[in-house]
Design a protein around this nucleic acid. Structure first.
Lengths: 144, 144
DNA sequence: ACCATTTCCATAGCGCCCTATACAACATGC
DNA sequence: GCATGTTGTATAGGGCGCTATGGAAATGGT
């Protein structure tokens, strides 16, 4: 029956499905899914610049600027301009954001677990391998 | 090193990556990725209602209404109200949209092929099986 | 010193997803 | 027959991704 299963649309659907699960887990914390990657970066090292976040997370600069604006509006971060270079703004977590780290980490783990629940651990591992190949093959596939 | 590879974010990234590839393939046709699912439904059977499209494609009703509004604006569809029931609007393709079917089909196949290129066919098949399990497990997991 | 370029960030505008709400048209109960 | 409920769409508003553009601060060449 299902001879051409159309993998790509499935992935898009799963991405939306996971976003919904994660959003539900994050709602009690007052966080949104899009804020998480930036928060994780800043939890590991506070004071990064926007350019550093853009480089670490694979999003466009404008996307990051907008996400940071929402996070500032929500009282999660402050942007302080560097003394020695007026272009650069270091992103600093507020006490509120620092206090959310443990709970957020648990929420992410719950979301990931719920998302992957239909697969057994061994299958999850093989799935991850395939996805990594796809992700690495997609960008800069040319060359060795 | 990579003990918890974080599968879900990978899927989100791949979904964005595929969207970019598909968008590039569709651009010459004047179509956008979000219009495709509705178009495919209508190519297979013209005149479906919005409710039928919502049921077939897994999106919210409001999302479909907005997508259809953009498609109407772009001259791809017409919405005609049913004679016997003033609530219902049958969605009909324009000649322009009908003429794009073959090219769009090829564009989708090219996008899918480019996306999956890093994996060999056998791996693609196993990946598809995993994803189907996830997709089916995610929605309505309760019951038999 | 100055002009051109580069670097870093912000803004405008759009696509597509969501929830919540509004509203018109049909269906039903009494 | 009329109020009540249900059904099919539309609208409002927001998140998060993108491209394109603008602007301010540093840098580099002459």
């Amino acid at each position: 029956m299902t001879e051409d299963t159309q993998i790509a649309p499935l992935i898009q659907q799963l991405a939306r499905s996971y976003a919904a699960i994660l959003q539900e887990q994050l709602k009690p914390l007052g966080l949104t899914p899009g804020q998480l990657p930036a928060l994780q970066q800043l939890w590991s090292q506070d004071g990064k610049t926007q350019a550093a976040l853009v480089a670490a997370l694979q999003v466009e600069q404008a996307t990051m600027a907008n996400t940071l604006a929402r996070m500032e509006r929500d009282g999660l971060i402050e942007r302080r301009k560097a003394a020695h270079d007026g272009r650069i703004r270091h992103i600093h977590l507020t006490a509120k954001a620092r206090g959310l780290e443990a709970e957020a980490r648990e929420a992410v783990m719950r979301a990931e677990a719920a998302f992957l629940a239909p697969l057994r651990p061994g299958q999850q591992k093989r799935l991850a391998e395939f996805l990594v190949v796809l992700a690495e093959g997609e960008q800069g596939s040319e060359g060795s």
